[in-house]
């Protein structure tokens, strides 16, 4: 599994038209900050961020068929570890992502072990993931070393320091963009790898996968652990972007759900789905918030979420496979290819 070889192959196999479109799109994203104001930069940051965590979640649900509703756990763990190490010990987030990844992987492994060893599947497994996120929320709420329910804050420094994730929206734009692209390449490589095929087999029919020599337990564990690790990295970045962490928001089930919308709407199990979903959903939600604020004269909390809820229902009703498979056809990409 060599990401670069995969990239070369992807470029090789993709139809010319789709490739050109993608290249143009990337070029626009690279130069866009020149014309974007602070607000739009922050919107794009959110798009890239949700595309990244969406891709991470998609590994578990889209590739391996394991429904996690507690991914906020890994965001929170990554965020708190990054913030703690920086504020309390002066350790750069560039280094802190290593412990962040390791801790998230450990938690993922425990959840996976509990679930998969005892044959807990589907909604039962989903509940287990929620339970762990909730336990983490309560734990952090009561842990005074990290500020408890009053929150944990990263001081804003005047001097920009990109390695330490200190800087303006422009910095976070590029960090999140890079994160999204790296996640994509990683997912593409995984999707084509032996492990990726094992995941697909497990998703489609675990019993049949077992009969073909696939160790189903190991495949599922790998999915949880890798997904947790990717999400934790995004968590570190989010903490430094927000500069604050509150357990009640960070580990909230609403956050977990918000994270999974993009891949579902974009197309579960596809490579482009989570990215496409984030590009559709986040701007719509943000526009709605701004619009309501303009009309009502004040922010009404929950408006964008009502919209998300309606979007979910409409999409799952009409195109349960998401937008990407539909768009793929329009772009002339044959079925069975990305």
């Amino acid at each position: 599994m060599n990401p670069f070889a995969t990239l070369a192959r992807l470029v090789d196999e993709a139809p010319r038209r789709a490739l050109l479109l993608l290249a143009a799109f990337l070029a626009v994203l690279l130069v866009a900050p020149v014309v974007l104001d602070r607000y739009l930069l922050s919107v794009f940051f959110l798009i890239f961020w949700f595309a990244t965590v969406g891709q991470a979640w998609n590994i578990m649900m889209g590739f391996c068929g394991q429904l996690s509703l507690g991914h906020a756990l890994y965001v929170g763990l990554g965020g708190y570890i990054g913030a703690l190490l920086w504020v309390k010990f002066g350790i750069s987030p560039a280094i802190a992502i290593v412990p962040a990844i390791l801790v998230a992987m450990a938690f993922g492994a425990v959840i996976g072990w509990l679930g998969f060893r005892f044959g807990i599947e589907g909604v039962y497994f989903a509940l287990l993931t929620i339970a762990f996120a909730e336990v983490a929320r309560i734990g952090f709420d009561n842990w005074s070393f990290v500020g408890g329910a009053a929150g944990f804050f990263i001081p804003v420094s005047a001097a920009a320091s990109p390695v330490n994730l200190r800087g303006g929206p422009m910095l976070f734009y590029y960090v999140a963009l890079a994160m999204m692209i790296i996640a994509f390449i990683l997912c593409a490589a995984l999707r084509r790898s032996r492990l990726g095929h094992a995941w697909l087999a497990v998703r489609e029919d675990a019993e049949a996968a077992r009969a073909l020599g696939i160790d189903v337990f190991r495949a599922k564990m790998a999915a949880v652990v890798i997904s947790a690790a990717m999400t934790a990295v995004a968590g570190v970045v989010y903490a430094f972007y927000q500069n604050n962490l509150f357990p009640s928001q960070t580990f909230d089930i609403a956050r977990s759900i918000e994270m999974i919308l993009a891949p579902i709407i974009g197309g579960l199990g596809t490579l482009f789905g989570p990215i496409l979903g984030a590009f559709i959903l986040t701007p719509l939600g943000q526009t709605l918030i701004a619009l309501v604020e303009k009309i009502a004269g004040r922010a009404i909390p929950g408006v964008n979420l009502v919209f998300y809820g309606a979007a979910l229902m409409v999409i799952i009703w009409f195109t349960p496979n998401g937008v990407w498979p539909w768009l793929k056809k329009k772009l002339g990409i044959p079925e069975g290819r990305e």
Binding site: V306, G309, W317
Partner: peptide
């Protein structure tokens, strides 16, 4: 998971509707 998404959509609307 499709049933779940439908009902989560409904739940989100209900909770935020109540909030509004």
């Amino acid at each position: 998971h499709e049933q779940f998404i439908l009902l989560v959509g409904l739940a989100i609307i209900m909770v935020n509707g109540t909030l509004m």
